[in-house]
Amino acid sequence: MRTFTSHDILFLLQAARWTLALSLLAFVGGGLGGAILAVGRISRVRALRSLASLYIQVVQGTPLLIQLFIWYFGISLLGADLSPIVAAAIALTLYSSAFFAEIWRGAIQSIAKGQWESASSLGLTRFETLWYVILPQSLRPALPPTVGFMVQIVKNTSLAALVGFVELARAGQLVNNITFQPLPVFACVAVIYFAICFPLSALSRWLERRTHGHRQLVRGT
């Protein structure tokens, strides 16, 4: 046993890079998957709607931890050996895509029906209407819940510790096992998580103000 030193903090920070990397993978993969699923959910093709909806319900209705175990332990039984980071990245991507899809579908459907009607009456296709009229207006209602969920993802990456992936939470455990000083160690871990999540929320507030610049201009007059 030894004391908690700056070396340990450095070790935690290095592990935090994996937390960041895993989060980024989930943001990008989950974002892409979520966009596709959201479009599926509002599709005119009934089969696509049902398929997207089924996927979302299954993923949202089961714990992320179990999904992670299926990818890590379950898949290896089938012969394919996934490394902890690949299993974690896949599980987090599939998990986040379901939540992003529902957040964005809600934002899209919050836009008044009259916007669809006037755009299609001008001859715009469904895709043009979505891209030029509906999505730009959906950004603002989508932003707070999107960022809120991104913060959840960052914290949920800690589950990857349970398949042996050394990210921030697992690193904290390791340091604690050596130093046996849980309070400073885990406080330090928490501070690092906070340092990742807080800028996200701050960015969200800033973007929210920016996407509505012209509204403030009106209030100013």
Partner: peptide, 13 residues
């Protein structure tokens, strides 16, 4: 065919 609605339906953005 042009159509104009009761609620204008201009694109606010």
């Amino acid at each position: 065919i042009g159509i104009v609605f009761q609620s204008y339906n201009l694109f606010p953005h």
